[in-house]
Amino acid sequence: MSVKERDPLTGHQTTGHEWDGITELNTRVPRAVWWAVGLTHLWAVIVWVLLPTWPLVTTYTKGLLGLTDRGEVDAAIVQANAARADWADPVLAMPVDEIRADDALIGRVRQTGHSLFGDNCAGCHGRDARGGPGFPNLIDGDWLWGGDPDTIIETLNVGINSTHPDTRTSQMMAFGRDGMLTRPQILSVIGHIRALSRTDAAPSADNPAGAEIYADNCASCHGDDGRGMEEIGAPNLTDNQWIYGGDDDSVYRTIWGGRQGWMPSWQGRLSPTEIKILTTYLLDAGAQ
């Protein structure tokens, strides 16, 4: 078994063993491999000298460059903020109308707004901001709490029914479940709401019961004419824009079980500039 043979093809000698027909040549390690060993080790040693690397029981070698990963990202962010300042500062300072009139600035807002809205708001309000069942459309010009920029900024800061201490609160009570209205009464008040949004008919004439129930229970929040009340975030019921759906079934469920939308507060998570950008972004998108 242990006969050193010369491989006729390569001319190299074998190590002299054979295992189940397998032999090995005793070829020298090719020089290229030693080069590769040398280069990679050299590179590694340089890196070790420059960067934090070797543990020393209670501390570690810090490296000549003095880098820390946290320091690097902090610096990158400070730098990014500085680079954006030329447009971000004006956006924070200027009124929304003026930003919208400034092509350059509103371009920035549109660019930035896309991912800012996409990553934070689209989950609820949809990628196109048109809302969906339970989440209001933000570009239909119809606002629960009012459409001027400061109001929207405030809404974003504190949220609605959120965990923020100054949150806006709004609640539509559960008239059916809590026994305030019976089923026929709810149906008749729905009839009244339907009539409210029609301009041709006088609502109380053909449904006096519904009108009375409405006046007693709903008008305090949604107003005598059903146009809502921005101070308490009560929606307009006459405009064919529905958060929870406008079909009889959904409206019935709203009145029976009540509603309390929950909009997170963004203060802290988003910077004042970002909140201003989003506000402008929405007002801009709504106007188009």
């Binding site: 390690v29 990679t40 890196v47 690397t53 070698t61 490296g63 990963d69």
Partner: peptide, 21 residues
Amino acid sequence: PYWVQTLGMTFSVMLLVPSWA
């Protein structure tokens, strides 16, 4: 910590040689 990451990176590159070998 950064130092462990550096070790991981450098040893991974040195590892290439025996792997290719």
